[in-house]
Design a protein around this nucleic acid. Structure first.
Lengths: 132, 132
DNA sequence: CATTTATTCAACCAAATGGTTGACAATTGA
DNA sequence: TCAATTGTCAACCATTTGGTTGAATAAATG
């Protein structure tokens, strides 16, 4: 079973379960930022934002270096690769389901064509819209 | 910005942040299971396990159908695809870092070779093992 | 029909989480 | 040197989470 280091996955997925932290990661994907810069867009105290950054740091998703009184944060993406690896195992399942869905829709189309040919049954007026 | 439906990502990543729930998903990847079967490997009450299944269900990762008094659960992977899509944006960053790491190691090797040639400095005995 | 099985529910509890506030430390700038 | 800035820390609070227990419900079985 794909069981990557569990505490790491615990922490990474937990860090990602909060929209504020995901937004912070996104901002760090464009450039390094100070703690205050990361905190700025959020309607919360600096201490609150600092806590979120600590969570990201603890999960290994952010690293920081201090210049004077300024803490510069940077994205550290390696642990996201671990999360991606974990998810990769399930790729076959959402691919399968998409294939299954296609098969089901095709079978339904054939069934409707058959009943229309025999005229034995009224075909339902509303049928799945496959155009989308 | 890749901002997929946030509440969905909240719920999905939160569901995945617990090792028990990840293990349950893995068991469902081999076949459908009853609630009791899912609960069995864990040292917790049936009600506790039932709560975890509810979290997975609320996140859209599991669906169930009831046969008599038995609740049959199945994996529902589509939302994992959304999580994967979110992570895909960061792929460039862990790829970059791996490239950066290689560059750094190569630069170090060159520097060591230069100093050995000039004999001006003792080269350190221990250096990064690049064989791995 | 009584008993058993499968599972959820409500109530409870401890721990964790997310946020605030005020104090404090380190550094910068005037 | 002092005020301002950057940021963390501790204490606090409300909410959420994860788990248990006993009761309740629905369905299957004898």
């Amino acid at each position: 079973m794909v069981e990557y280091s569990t505490p790491t996955l615990d922490a990474v997925f937990h860090a990602l379960s909060d929209p504020t932290r995901r937004a912070m990661l996104h901002r760090l994907s464009t450039s390094e930022r100070t703690v205050s810069e990361l905190a700025t867009p959020f309607n919360m105290s600096l201490a609150g934002a600092s806590k979120h950054i600590k969570v990201l740091e603890a999960a290994g998703l952010v690293r920081r270096h201090v210049q004077g009184r300024t803490h510069i944060c940077a994205l550290q993406a390696a642990r996201l690769a671990e999360a991606q690896e974990w998810l990769r195992y399930y790729e076959q399942f959402w691919q399968e389901r998409l294939d299954d869905l296609e098969d089901i829709l095709r079978a339904e189309d054939r069934a409707l064509a058959e009943t229309a040919k025999h005229g034995a049954r009224k075909t339902p007026k509303s049928k799945p819209d496959t155009k989308e």
